[in-house]
């Protein structure tokens, strides 16, 4: 790529300047000229920012909004809190709130799934906070433009309580969960955020409602969950999908010590084998 980013400077030197701008400045950078736009939008630019630690760390959280006039009252039962995204920059200690999802002015869908993919944030599924209808919507927040865009809706059955994991690059995986009739699902699919396309993976060996999905080093680990007959009685098993060979490996028995919801599970992976580090105690 023999393009000039800054007149008089070699390409890689000019890029050395651009990778050091703060993420908030990237919206300006893409608006300068064509070569700056294509440079900053390239995956290589993001990779370099990460590799040289010149990017900023951002922590995105889902928090319930407490309205000031309600804060002193006891929260009434039946009132569902309004959830929204908050953003923390650990380096500066700055907090801000992300704009609401388009069409969800009453807060995020309940039980929606969230993952970071590349420099985007992806939000999927959940229940509409007002109608409690299952949402198949996909929303993507871009930190450069600071705007939300709609992705292609989740195909197939109206799926909820599925496992969700990101490869951190461009793909998110949707595994198990249940359909509109509360049938637990074995099916798995993936969404490519860059191409805005869905594709299917082979089915898992078991139905896994409320399972946990974790992506590490080219492997999608799906942990726990339960089949339709076992409503709420969680399994201790896990299974692993290998992206390179495009197939599910053997089911791992007894990965979990106790048969409970794996939602708060933390794991470490060594040579493709998962080790459970810790889990939160108490209700789910």
């Amino acid at each position: 790529m023999a393009m000039e980013l800054i007149p008089g400077l070699p390409y890689d030197i000019a890029r050395g300047c651009l990778i050091r701008v703060e993420y908030k400045q990237l919206a300006t950078v893409v608006s300068i000229c064509r070569s700056w736009k294509s440079e900053t939008e390239s995956p290589e630019f993001r990779r370099l920012r990460n590799a040289t630690c010149t990017g900023q760390k951002l922590v995105v959280m889902v928090q319930a909004r407490v309205s000031p006039d309600q804060a002193s009252n006891i929260v009434k039962y039946g009132d569902s809190p309004v959830y929204r995204f908050t953003l923390l920059e650990p380096d500066t200690g700055d907090w801000c709130e992300l704009p609401p999802l388009p069409g969800f002015s009453n807060g995020l869908p309940m039980f929606c799934q969230v993952a970071s993919v590349g420099s985007d944030l992806v939000v999927m599924g959940g229940l509409d906070p007002v109608t409690w209808e299952v949402s198949t919507s996909v929303f993507i927040f871009n930190f450069v433009s600071a705007t939300w865009r709609r992705g292609a809706d989740m195909p197939g059955v109206r799926r909820s309580f599925f496992g969700f994991a990101s490869d951190s690059d461009r793909t998110v995986y949707v595994v198990g969960g249940h359909d509109g009739d509360k049938n637990a699902l074995r099916s798995t699919m993936a969404y490519d955020t860059a191409r805005d396309e869905w594709f299917s993976l082979p089915d898992m060996a078991r139905e896994r409602d409320e399972c946990k999905a974790i992506f590490r080093h080219g492997r999608l680990h799906v942990i726990g969950g339960y089949c339709t007959e076992m409503q709420g009685r969680f399994e201790r098993t896990a299974e692993v999908f290998e992206i390179a060979s495009w197939q599910w490996k053997n089911v791992i028995d007894d990965l979990l010590e106790d048969a409970t919801c794996p939602k708060d599970l933390r794991v470490r992976e060594r040579r493709g084998v998962l080790h459970v580090l810790w889990r939160l105690c108490g209700g789910t």
């Binding site: 800054i6 007149p7 300047c17 651009l18 701008v21 400045q25 300006t28 950078v29 300068i32 000229c33």
Partner: peptide
């Protein structure tokens, strides 16, 4: 990178002569 922090698009263009 710091000098163009929080600057307008027009400022950045004239800064680098782009």
């Amino acid at each position: 990178a710091d000098r163009i922090q929080n600057r307008s698009v027009e400022y950045v263009r004239s800064f680098f002569g782009i």
